[in-house]
Design a protein around this nucleic acid. Sequence first.
DNA 1: ACCCAGGTGGCCC
DNA 2: GGGCCACATGGG
Length: 213
Amino acid sequence: MALLQIYKRLLKHFGRQYWWPADTSFEVIVGAILTQQTTWKNVEKAIDNLRENDLLDVSSLARVNLRRLEKVIRPAGYFHQKAERLKGVCKYIYKNYGDDLDKLFSKPIPNLREELLSLNGLGPETVDSIILYAANKPIFVIDAYTRRMAHRLGITDLDQYEDLRKYFEKHLPNDLELYQEFHALIVELGKNYCKTKPNCFLCPLRKECQFSQ
DNA sequence: ACCCAGGTGGCCC
DNA sequence: GGGCCACATGGG
């Protein structure tokens, strides 16, 4: 099945997702770091804690005491690593751009991507999530769900992050909103369908599936 | 008592 | 370039 058809079917089944679930671009960055290998539910607790502690901004996180930050984001797991990395990213942003994220995000995608990838704690998926949902620029995010879906549907055998990203971008219209919604829908698919039973996981993508009618 | 979650970086070969 | 591993909480 063509990628665009899969997108349409998922959209029909799950409806629009209006991703990313965050109020500001900065919260997208924070969420993208905290949600690494962690359920969003736990990330929400950590973000709520950050907000209650008045730490949910670049300058505060750039200067926060590391022990305190660890305590605040604890529910998100890997809290030693994530505290250090989150603070490090904020220190970098604050030093170079202050509170003006737009100055960072106004750069062309390749430059922005390279710059973010150079920071400790920001790998390809996190960086692309930030570019897609915080900077609002069209780049296709590849995650475990996307890779699994691509392989199980026999869309492609490609497995490397960059190879998959380029494949998806090549076979889809270059459209910001489509990229944002498609990734959100794939995550929704992955979260709702059993990963140990391929048929179940792919259910909404099958013609005979009761949910996709 | 397992297994997994919207990854990343370090280390080894 | 590829294969392991540590990192950690909370829910099934």
